[in-house]
Design a protein around this nucleic acid. Structure first.
Lengths: 352, 352
DNA sequence: ACAATTATTGACAGCGCTATCATCGGATTG
DNA sequence: CAATCCGATGATAGCGCTGTCAATAATTGT
């Protein structure tokens, strides 16, 4: 294909139409709505496209049609492994479709988010995927004025802007705490970093579960707004230990912190799980390999990315989902760090 | 700003020009080459833009000017932490510029890379950033026919397509092996996964350093084409141990493998560094937190991303770099896993 | 002072595609 | 068999911006 391309000048839709013996507008329709063409013309245009190696000019298309084929994606972090998985799902799903992904990073700043959304609006994207449900009022207004399908990802809640895919961080944290309580632990510490809205919700799940068991104690809690690192996990744990030496378990808002705690325990000769149970969140790959392996909450991030794109594309093309909010659930993966036996317990109902 | 926007219809450049009392083409120049305007007109257009909340139509601009303001970025993986850092640098650097990043993922497939490059070429990007120096002949041809600045990242070599930013994986691996040898270790194992071209080059650095010391032995090597995981590190190490029980050190092509080895050693009660030295690669954050902390090779990935974008933008705008190949070097970060004392030794000369 | 040069500015004509509406057979219908 | 409808196709007219080149104003040299 494309052998004429180099020979002569540019291949425009006009050239394709000429070769196929149809009008340019018919050739145009071949791309947008092939079913509208008679079989014979469809085939003629198809072979002309291949013969000439025609590639559509997206700028011209966007200008004439007043729309782009861009799906904007707004995420808070490029470093966080969690988003890498989501992004992989997003890119995988968009591949093969006509849509292009445009990525933007808020760095957890809601002002930056507003700015980015404004930028996106100016570009008239075909669809939008945004992280979380805690947009500012202004951001919500922008999203609602977008005039394109919007999917919120990572968590679910009432009043979606449009559609949602995610899971309940509150429930996931509650499930983790229930598990720890079932193991007979009573003094369960909470370690949190960054404290973005989703982490906040995990905290609430922890808090309410502890209160329900009449075990809540502010001294069990250590948090910081500093971004998560493994090293930080160790530091926070040291702080917790200094503050409340009699803890018998720690719930970490993510696996990196949990790994940091594990290392710190090795340093201090605290035996896991004998002296202390550790539970993480996200089920990153290393949790299974650690010694002891770390109990964590698996979330279906790759699937989340895939679904988000599918939902947006479907909506763009008029196939609105039956229900706008999709709960992908979670699974508590019990490993050695919180018990002796390794099993998997299902969380809320997923898709899979 | 933008208060007229909602009131009446679309704000086009014409409207701005009218309000500023200039011709549309002058208003257009305000964006492309403000220095060409007289101060008075420049100010008038500027305030008209703000007054009307004008936002340029990028599609129209691209169509009329035959160029886009897109910088394409081709990377092999979205999952690999290493690329997350590079991407962060890329996005950070592109912010504030007029250019937009368009990301594409080859998944380590050179055919996919060819396909993506063809796609990019059709879109006439303003610049391109591609990973590595091992493009197929076909890919190189496409890159050379791009007619835009191209920067190859992650490694350096002779014969850049255009520009390069990276470091020598060969030298970095050699430096790591030299260090291990200096510690008095002689039976140094090599653990490799994925074996992409850069990993291959690290292997060559290992191989040649071992040969130079007359210590090379094929039985010291275990590799696989399977993607890296922490768990895999443990598995490969077990294989190595079965194959060659008398090893006294392991060089892992990345930190995930090294962590896996560390865990496997904990499982087998192999004392680090007494019985075995471990050295990783990339200096991911957890290496410093591990117990014992893991010696690794620090590479300047974030800077690499930043430089790549800067170089491309500079080249687009006619400011070609003095030298097309930028070596960002590496630093061997010596930690407990390979010695008793913790120090940093400088590798090849960096920028910083 | 006047031609030559250089900064500013503008007119014109598209870029390549698609929205819109018109057209035109042929199938459907009573 | 005329009236009606529908599917398939085409003609026209831009979308909003910038490349090109010409025109004009300001500046300079001799």
């Amino acid at each position: 294909m494309g052998r004429k391309q180099t020979k002569s000048g540019k291949i425009r839709l006009t050239e394709v139409a000429k070769l196929a013996g149809v009008s340019p507008i018919t050739a145009s329709r071949f791309f947008r709505n092939p079913e509208a063409l008679s079989l014979s013309k469809r085939e003629r245009v198809d072979s002309a496209v291949k013969e000439l190696g025609y590639v559509p000019n997206l700028a011209a298309r966007a200008l004439a049609s007043h729309r782009t084929e861009v799906i904007g994606v707004v995420i808070p972090s490029l470093t966080n492994n969690v988003f890498a998985d989501v992004l992989r799902g997003i890119y995988d799903s968009s591949e093969g479709s006509r849509y292009t992904i445009q990525l933007a990073n808020t760095r957890y700043s809601i002002l930056q988010e507003e700015k980015l959304l404004r930028l996106f609006r100016a570009q008239k994207p075909a669809g939008l995927i945004v992280t979380g449900i805690n947009q500012t009022a202004e951001s919500r207004t922008i999203l609602e004025s977008m005039n394109c399908p919007v999917t919120q990802i990572m968590e679910i809640g009432d009043s979606p802007v449009d559609m949602m895919v995610g899971f309940s961080h509150y429930d996931a944290a509650s499930a983790a705490i229930s598990h720890i309580l079932e193991q007979g632990r009573r003094r369960i510490g909470f370690l949190g970093a960054r404290m973005d809205p989703r982490v906040q919700r995990r905290f609430e799940g922890y808090r309410d579960a502890m209160k329900a068991a009449s075990l809540f104690d502010p001294n069990l809690i250590v948090t910081t707004s500093v971004p998560t690192t493994v090293t930080l996990g160790g530091t926070l744990f040291a702080d917790l230990l200094a503050q409340t030496p009699d803890i018998d378990a720690v719930f970490c808002v993510n696996d990196d912190l949990a790994l940091g705690v594990l290392f710190e325990c090795q340093r201090r000769q605290i035996s896991i799980p004998r002296d202390l149970a550790i539970v993480g969140f996200n089920d990153l790959e290393f949790t299974a390999a650690a010694v002891p392996s770390i109990t964590s909450v698996r979330t279906n991030r790759y699937e989340m990315g895939r679904h988000a794109v599918t939902m947006v594309i479907d909506a763009i093309e008029g196939r609105r989902p039956q229900t706008p909010v999709l709960d992908l659930g979670f699974q508590l993966v019990v490993r050695e760090s919180s018990t002796r036996q390794s099993t998997v317990m299902a969380g809320s109902v997923g898709i899979d």
